Amino acid sequence: MTEYKLVVVGAGGVGKSALTIQLIQNHFVDEYDPTIEDSYRKQVVIDGETCLLDILDTAGQEEYSAMRDQYMRTGEGFLCVFAINNTKSFEDIHHYREQIKRVKDSEDVPMVLVGNKCDLPSRTVDTKQAQDLARSYGIPFIETSAKTRQGVDDAFYTLVREIRKHKEKMSKDGKKKKKKSKTKCVIM
């Protein structure tokens, strides 16, 4: 069974824990209790493949930012979460993405942009803004509501699919490099 290491990042209060708990335990946590770091595991079937999701729910508070490099190193894919009623959390996505790329030393890291709290009427981040940002990053965008469960499975499952595509691409690139290195030079 394939294991996928997913990391949920975003500013404090955007609903990272609520999304994760909704996926794992099928219930909505409405009281806000700032996370330092929590880890969850769940076995699911995605596109006919049974897999184990190892999900790291991270601290959004700035005082825990020193811990970010460590979990970013171990993560295979990242859910970059903002709240649709919090423009600052949307603007912060850029910083999370840049930090992930720096730590992973790669421009090509599996990510999904997630606009959470889409059940709320007080939207300050337009869907088109988020779609445009995701398009500019070359990553999928999904709106979710941890409260109603809308888009929750889709967000995590899409990230797994992005990781699969990335692994497939990397193995193809690896095979191309191996083929090239088999060419021999004969000096007579």
Rank of each mutant, 00 (worst) to 15 (best):
V186S: 13
L133D: 04
S181P: 06
M188F: 01
K177R: 03
D153Y: 09
E162C: 02
Q131M: 08
D126P: 03
T183F: 00
L133F: 13
Q150I: 15
A146Y: 00
G151L: 07
R149L: 13
H166V: 10
D126Y: 10
D132Y: 02
L159P: 00
A134W: 02
A130V: 13
V160G: 02
K165L: 03
F156S: 01
E162W: 01
T158M: 13
L133H: 08
H166I: 07
S136Y: 04
D153R: 11
F156H: 01
K178R: 05
Y157K: 14
D153G: 10
G138C: 07
T127P: 07
V160A: 04
K128I: 12
K128H: 12
Y137W: 15
R135F: 02
S136M: 11
I142L: 08
Y137V: 14
K178C: 10
Q129Y: 14
V186G: 14
V152A: 06
A130C: 12
T127W: 12
S181A: 09
R135I: 05
V152M: 14
H166Y: 10
E162L: 04
S145G: 14
K128E: 12
T183Q: 15
D132T: 05
T158F: 03
H166C: 07
L133K: 07
T127M: 12
R135D: 15
L159E: 00
Y137H: 09
D132H: 04
K182F: 01
D153P: 07
F156W: 03
Q129R: 11
K178L: 14
S145T: 14
V160F: 07
T158G: 04
S136K: 09
D132R: 03
H166P: 01
A155P: 07
D132P: 01
T158L: 08
L133M: 08
Y157Q: 14
F141N: 01
V160I: 11
D126S: 11
K175C: 15
Y137Q: 10
D126K: 06
Q131Y: 10
S136A: 05
Y157D: 10
R164C: 03
T127V: 12
Y137G: 06
V160C: 04
K175F: 13
D126Q: 06
Q129M: 11
Y137M: 14
E168M: 06
Y157E: 15
E162T: 03
V152L: 15
K184L: 00
D153A: 13
M188R: 15
T127D: 12
D132N: 08
I142H: 05
K128M: 08
K177G: 09
Y137S: 11
D153W: 06
D153E: 14
Y157A: 15
V152G: 06
K178S: 12
V160W: 02
K182I: 06
K128C: 12
K165M: 06
H166A: 05
L159Y: 00
D154K: 10
K128G: 12
K178Y: 11
Q129C: 08
A130D: 03
Q131N: 06
V152K: 04
V160Y: 06
I139K: 01
V186L: 10
G151S: 07
A134G: 05
D173T: 05
V160H: 03
K177A: 15
A155K: 00
D153L: 12
Q131G: 06
D173F: 06
Y137A: 12
T158V: 02
Y157R: 15
M170W: 09
R135Y: 06
C185A: 15
E143D: 14
K128P: 10
A155Y: 00
I139R: 01
Q150V: 13
D126H: 10
H166R: 09
A134T: 02
V125N: 02
K178E: 14
L159A: 02
V125G: 14
Q131C: 04
F156P: 00
K169M: 10
K128S: 14
A155C: 10
T158D: 07
K128F: 10
V152Y: 13
V125C: 06
M188Q: 15
T158R: 02
R149S: 11
V160N: 02
D132G: 05
K167W: 02
V125S: 13
D154H: 09
D153F: 10
R135P: 01
R164W: 07
Y157M: 14
D154F: 05
K128Y: 10
I139G: 02
L133G: 03
K178G: 14
A146F: 00
H166L: 10
A130T: 07
R135W: 03
K169Y: 10
D132V: 03
Q129G: 09
I139T: 06
V152H: 09
A155E: 00
K165S: 03
K178T: 06
Y157T: 11
E162Q: 07
F156M: 07
K178V: 05
V125L: 04
D154M: 07
E162R: 03
K167R: 13
T127S: 12
F156G: 00
D132S: 07
K128W: 07
Y157H: 11
A130S: 04
A155D: 00
M170C: 11
L133R: 06
Y137E: 14
V160S: 02
D154G: 05
Q129S: 13
K176Y: 13
L133Y: 12
V152T: 08
D154S: 10
R135S: 10
K167G: 05
Q129L: 11
A134H: 10
A155M: 11
D153C: 11
A155L: 05
Y137N: 09
T127L: 12
V125T: 03
L133E: 06
D126I: 05
D126G: 11
Y157F: 11
K169C: 09
Q131L: 07
A130G: 07
H166W: 08
T127F: 12
K167P: 02
T127Q: 09
A155V: 11
A146S: 01
A130E: 04
K128D: 12
S136N: 08
A134D: 03
K165T: 11
E162I: 01
D173S: 03
T127N: 13
Y157W: 08
I139Y: 03
V152N: 07
D126T: 09
T144F: 01
L159G: 00
A130H: 07
V186I: 02
H166F: 12
R135L: 09
L159I: 09
V152F: 13
G174V: 07
S136G: 14
K172M: 14
V152D: 04
R161P: 00
V125W: 15
H166D: 08
R135Q: 12
A155R: 00
F156Y: 04
D126C: 10
R149Y: 12
R135V: 04
D132M: 04
A155W: 01
K128N: 10
H166S: 08
D153N: 11
R135N: 09
H166M: 13
Q150R: 11
K165F: 01
A146I: 00
K169W: 07
Y137R: 05
K178D: 15
